[in-house]
Amino acid sequence: MEITAAAQPANWDGGVSPFGIGWSKLMMWLFIVSDGLVFAGFLAIYGFIRLASPDWPDRSRMFHLDFIALMTFTLISSSATMATAVAAAREGNRKTVLRFLLLTVLGGCAFLGMQAYEWTGLIREGAGLGSNPWGAPLFGACFFVLTGFHGSHVLSGVIVLAMTAVRSRMGMARAEGVELAGLYWHFVDLVWVFIFTLFYLI
């Protein structure tokens, strides 16, 4: 999902753009709504399956929730560093932007590492897409689909952030490009808030 910041100059001369933001930010928000609805679809399916299966394993016993909390902590911190990078980009001091962008990329990679670690742990315990040892037959499938798709978005986010970092290192990235990458990253963190609560805690 490559976001080209250097798009065509806005040739809106019909007075004030209705939302007071450039078209690229408006399009980013619409993309976030559309992509968010894919996750809304997955969560609706997960809700349907929870209601349709007689029992559901007790997640606090099978997941060590402090590790999941650490994952959430990492993602929220990377979100905060991203917000700082965006604010710095708006102010124009490129050194801070670069530093916080790299911190965000680091946070993203750490989250992916922890996710991979958790996956291998569960797979070693016998959980798979088709079956899992904790009762409800679709628990494994729901877990791997939800966290897998979120993970793929985190991965694409890390790639986008790495490219933005390289471009800002070479002085090509405009403030708007960093802001769009930031919007996407915060969106990925927002989805994790929903998955973390609805899957692990409720």
Binding site: V33, A40, G41, A44, G47, L51, A52, S53, P54
Partner: peptide, 25 residues
């Protein structure tokens, strides 16, 4: 647009199918 677009559509989808999940069970 953002909040209603996401929350309302997701809620409509879940509300429409939740009744059937219980019925399937």
């Amino acid at each position: 647009i953002v909040t209603l677009g996401l929350l309302l559509v997701g809620a409509i989808l879940f509300a429409g199918i939740a009744a059937d999940a219980v019925r399937v069970l």
